[in-house]
Design a protein around this nucleic acid. Structure first.
Lengths: 345, 345
DNA sequence: TCATTCTTCCAAAGCGCTTTGAACAGAAAC
DNA sequence: GTTTCTGTTCAAAGCGCTTTGGAAGAATGA
């Protein structure tokens, strides 16, 4: 059933039916009722493409998911972020268009989304510290929101991010307060902006307490379970092993725990661990007292916020850039305790 | 730059330019060259919506991602599946439209995708054993491919699935061959078809070797790490604990390992574990000798196959249903060994 | 030479919707 | 009674593309 048929059925013009359904005032209330009733009855849904062509809006939002061509890796955070964003889109009648793109073809992907007119706005994922994509998107002219930030970018742009620096500073200080002095950082890929900020927070905390950072205790890589395990095992094998770990994601944290337990040590008692927790739905760190002490910040919620902001930008363009900085919540768990007595200072 | 402008620039009609770009024969080769060169130069990309409206094709594929409203859970497999499918779409010029839908609103989501004309085909995820969605999709009339199967469905339809029954039968037999008699099954949610088939394979193997299944050793739930941990801990605490575990996904398997090690037992020596491995990119069970003995089947590859099949169906509709049954590969790893001597038979 | 067939191009219609500009009542104002 | 609103409806144009049905010119065949 399309508009033409519906209007013929009703004995009205397409104009009137269209206006009645889209809430324009110049339609008699009685007519509107009649139209709406018929539309519901015949399950009329306007054709997206035709509507888009006529209005110039796509009623769709694009997400470009870079897939690391080196690591063949999909960001584990992506599914939950998407779920959050999707919730919002649905309520506003927007579709979500996903482009899975090898990270060396991203530029073209953004350009195409714009020139083909398939979306009204874009969410950008996984910003590096220096991001060519931001100026690219500005040049393209589509509204966009960045999930995360690019520290080296000087222009204004819209982003939603977690206060990574503060979260890691706070977590690190918590460990220091517990008496830990040798604290390892199991970070994400170095080029990623979030990793850089977490490193900064970690270093700040150490410095504030007069502790020299030990490069041997700092790792950066794709955040897999194996990475957490390997790093931890190697560090624990040193003559001067760390007594605590700070981890960038629950996934490597599982590897940390494994290495710790395999070494015959116990979490909290021998080795403390604080992890960043994105609240990934299948890796919940929940329960009465969560397994891991954590800096918690829901990536799903971040998805919702990005989506809401983007839709607002699409509806009323031209405003000033808005930035949302979420604070991670400190969640005490069962993986932290005072530094063991004999810890070298 | 749109078609009109491009054709004016070239001094040709829109018709000719359109045909030249779309590879129709009735265009002089010289003209075609000229048009293509200009198109490249001005970075002309036809407007998707206009093209779709004219051709009646959306050049997009829909994925409906049900989000369990009870568990607020996104299938962890989804990100990698999507990445695989996305690779294929890109090469064929298709967009990917994702609808994140609470699982009680799925029917409407499918209907809307069809009537709004936003997609040419649909990929269905996470089939239950009895699936109302399949007849719904058949009624709707859009081409669709199911990732997985619905055992109770009698009609023909296109699917791509792993041979879950055989994989779990084989894995279970492997454990039996190693001398294990008390083998636990950490399965997925009971309603899911894959879980039912895995259970069937497991039971077959037991029965074939005259072993009575013990209901206390069979669990079904959402596949989280905590679920694997809790189940294992409880089972190991029994007076007659299992000596081996069969797990439906790497995520609960991590929990199994944790519970095993926490109980002071060692994998392979005291407790054997075989896991199903979807090759999730951030939970690689790799290395020279993988950590876990596994039944491996890449979900990313499944995504590619589904996408390819769907595009074929869109291009030439009306053929007979095609079914692809993938065999999981048996991967010997470090988590299996002979049943401990004193194992009760 | 003229009729016929290709080859190459084009004008215009149409996809399903929104939106502009106008028309037509009936009511209100003069 | 005429004019001016006001409220309601409609015809038609337009969004950017594809595709149908010619048409004009070149090539072919008798």
């Amino acid at each position: 059933m399309n508009l033409k048929q519906l209007s013929q059925t009703l004995g009205l013009s397409q104009t009137t039916v269209s206006r009645a359904l889209n809430g324009y005032p110049e339609v008699a209330e009685a007519t509107r009722q009649r139209v709406q009733k018929a539309a519901a009855e015949y399950a009329y849904r306007p054709n997206t493409r035709a509507k888009g062509l006529a209005t110039g809006r796509a009623m769709a939002v694009g997400h470009v998911i870079p897939v690391s061509s080196r690591h063949e890796m999909v960001n584990p955070v992506f599914a939950d972020f998407t779920a959050g964003a999707g919730e919002i889109y649905v309520t506003h009648g927007y579709d979500m268009l996903i482009s899975v793109v090898p990270d060396d073809a991203e530029e073209q992907a953004y350009r195409d989304l714009a020139t083909k007119g398939s979306v009204d706005g874009i969410i950008m994922h996984g910003p590096r510290s220096t991001e060519a994509r931001i100026s690219l998107l500005q040049e393209i002219g589509l509204p966009f929101v960045v999930h995360g930030r690019a520290s080296d970018e000087t222009d204004d742009y819209d982003w939603v991010d977690v206060n990574n620096r503060r979260a890691f500073r706070r977590a690190c200080e918590h460990l220091i307060d517990l008496g830990h002095r040798r604290i390892a950082l199991i970070n994400g890929l170095e080029v990623m902006d979030f990793a850089r900020r977490r490193l900064a927070g970690y270093l700040e905390a150490l410095q504030a307490h007069g502790i020299d950072a030990d490069p041997a205790l700092i790792r950066s890589d794709e955040m897999t379970e194996a990475y957490g395990y390997d790093s931890t095992r190697q560090m624990l094998a040193r003559q001067n092993p760390p007594t605590a770990f700070l981890s960038s994601s629950v996934i490597p944290t599982l590897g940390i725990r494994r290495a710790v337990e395999e070494a015959g040590l116990r979490l909290a008692r021998d080795i403390s661990v604080i992890t960043h927790d994105d609240e990934l739905s299948y890796l919940r760190n929940g329960g009465e007292v969560p397994t891991f002490t954590a800096m918690r910040s829901s990536v799903r919620q971040a998805g919702r916020l990005c989506a809401e902001r983007l839709i607002a930008m699409i509806r009323t363009p031209g405003g000033p850039a808005q930035n949302t900085l979420l604070e991670a919540e400190f969640i005490p768990g069962q993986s932290t305790g005072p530094a063991p007595g004999g810890a070298t200072a």
